[in-house]
Write a protein that binds this DNA or RNA. Structure first.
Lengths: 152, 152
DNA sequence: GGCAATTGCTTGCGTGCGCAACCTTTCTTC
DNA sequence: GAAGAAAGGTTGCGCACGCAAGCAATTGCC
């Protein structure tokens, strides 16, 4: 059961999964090009739109996006120069910067979201039964829990 | 059913999935560091080891890895200078180059494989039931089929 | 209260990769 | 068989990101 090799079933799951991930990511990325957005950019907009006052501390945003601090700084540079996000200094702690959604950023998100959602459905969920979608949720909830529990 | 938004179940599947992917990739990558290998490098060694005569044409390897031609050229540069892979000119078609596993490359793969497999199991499959693993295989087989069928 | 440790963010550097341009070899078409 | 099209690989360039170092502000400890 727990041999040093993968069983046929495990192998099948792993290979199909790995293969799907890269292809799907590329497809989702491509679907966002018409909006001038990267998948990464889109994620930023989503997190900010869900946050209180449409703003988040850089470090919180970074961990939420699983991005290094420098990575987030650079990604934000792009979004700021596109006018979708702005940096706001915190009055209470002068070390921290907030990333804040601008009006234009909110508009852009509202504009792109339906397409992106359709994209997720088309590229990912389309041919799955409700039962399979539910199962998917269960499975990756377990995987996620396991990953966060892991000693790294 | 096919609204412009994701149902709760779809949302759960999507979010857990997306979150898991990046974390898991980082973890698998980290587990290979002791061997001086990248996940990408490891994939190259696997493909070559499975190929006839332990060699593949660059272009075939590139598509198999979902990598651009230039991307593969660079990745191979690294593996060649590590001595794990060598470039072999094709006698029959002088445009093509083979990427061929060296003896050292084979040794390295045999050395790293058990750890990597354990890594996949620990980070991914560990807490899943056999039924869930089977289901995972089913699901991503469908997803893969859908993705390859998609107009891009 | 003052000095170290910590936290938060940014910058310099290196790496990996895609795209476009390029060269070479082979295939196609007449 | 010669000219154009296509296929296979590599190189120049740019971009995104991680790591280590650095700087500023805050917290902790005595």
């Amino acid at each position: 059961m727990a041999s040093t090799w993968l069983s046929a079933s495990e192998m099948r799951a792993w290979r199909n999964f790995i293969e799907s991930v890269s292809t799907m990511t590329a497809a989702l990325e491509g679907d966002l090009v018409p909006f001038g957005l990267t998948l990464g950019d889109y994620e930023v907009l989503v997190r900010l739109s869900e946050a209180e006052n449409h703003r988040l501390r850089m470090c919180d945003l970074a961990t939420s996006l699983q991005l290094s601090p420098s990575g987030l700084t650079r990604r934000l540079d792009g979004l700021v120069s596109s006018g979708l996000v702005e940096r706001v200094a915190s009055p209470s702690d002068r070390r921290v910067m907030f990333a804040a959604l601008t009006a234009a950023g909110h508009v852009k998100l509202v504009e792109a979201a339906p397409d992106h959602v359709a994209s997720v459905r088309n590229r990912f969920l389309k041919d799955l039964t409700n039962e399979q979608v539910r199962s998917l949720g269960d499975i990756f909830e377990i995987v996620r829990a396991n990953l966060t529990a892991c000693p790294q």
